[in-house]
């Protein structure tokens, strides 16, 4: 069973060697070689000074892709319902808490604690953008991108209003890195809308399938797809970068995969 098609009005991407959507288009289309360079994420000026000091990579990354997607869609993020999806949220903060709880002192800072909630990035986003709309934060381990896209599409179709999807992953430091080796920070932002607008780039129709997931022929990109949950989106991003219509299959849960019919 397919969900009704929705419109993609804005897109953003930040990952290794993929500093923004414009550069990513050339790489995804094969016009420029993919090189996995380290990712630089800066704190957006929008974040109040106190919050900027407290913000780790996950908050800066999610905010950067959220703002870029909203800008691409020509829409004020302050009024946009949003869905945040991430396998592990702020992994660095989580490590510091676990480390402190394993010490003899067990002193943890209130800021570390409130930053430990999975919706911390969404909380900072709402404060920075003054957004009082519905906001959800979710995880589905490796299937987090697919789960977020389904939830955001559901929001769009039932509310009749646009929705911003922010998908991001960051790495744990060791020792958890050994059990969850996310090699680079990676973020994707999509503005989805129920109706065609001036910025609409494509339509997306979602359904579940048992078909195998699409892969990428360029080894560095395929490596990202396999190793970072948010990068499971890359076959869709490649199709959108090329501007072509057709069906894309993304990895989702176990043998359940997400088929996306991309239209013009």
């Amino acid at each position: 069973m397919s969900m009704d098609a929705i419109y993609l009005d804005g897109i953003s991407l930040l990952g290794p060697g993929l500093p923004d959507w414009e550069e990513a288009v050339a790489i995804l289309c094969g016009d420029k070689p993919a090189e996995l360079a380290p990712v630089t994420v800066t704190a957006p000026a929008l974040l109040p000074a106190t919050e900027r000091r407290r913000a780790g990579t996950s908050i800066k990354l999610s905010m950067a892709v959220g703002l870029a997607a909203a800008e691409a869609a020509g829409i004020d993020p302050g009024g946009l319902a949003n869905v945040f999806t991430s396998s592990g949220g702020d992994c660095e903060n989580c490590h510091h808490l676990l480390d402190a709880l394993a010490s003899s002192e067990r002193m943890i800072s209130p800021t570390r604690f409130h930053n430990s909630v999975h919706n911390a990035a969404a909380g900072y986003w709402s404060i920075a953008t003054h957004c009082e709309a519905a906001s959800t934060s979710l995880s589905a381990y490796d299937a987090s991108f697919g789960a977020g896209l389904i939830e955001a599409a559901g929001q769009v179709l039932t509310s009749g209003a646009p929705c911003l999807l922010i998908a991001f992953d960051t790495a744990y430091p060791e020792p958890l890195f050994a059990l969850r080796p996310v090699p680079f920070p990676f973020g994707v932002g999509l503005v989805l809308s129920p109706t065609r607008g001036a910025h609409s780039m494509a339509t997306l129709g979602l359904s579940l399938t048992r078909d195998p997931a699409d892969t990428l022929s360029e080894p560095p990109l395929e490596q990202l797809r396999r190793e970072i949950p948010t990068a499971r989106a890359l076959p869709l991003l490649q199709r959108l970068a090329g501007g072509g219509a057709g069906r894309v299959v993304l990895d989702y849960l176990d043998d359940t995969r997400l088929a996306i019919e991309v239209g013009g």
Binding site: S137, L138, S139, L253, D254
Partner: peptide, 17 residues
Amino acid sequence: VRHYFDLAGPACVISTA
């Protein structure tokens, strides 16, 4: 829970504190 019932539908955890 998904494995407990051998399910193959959509799933996620919502974690908003």
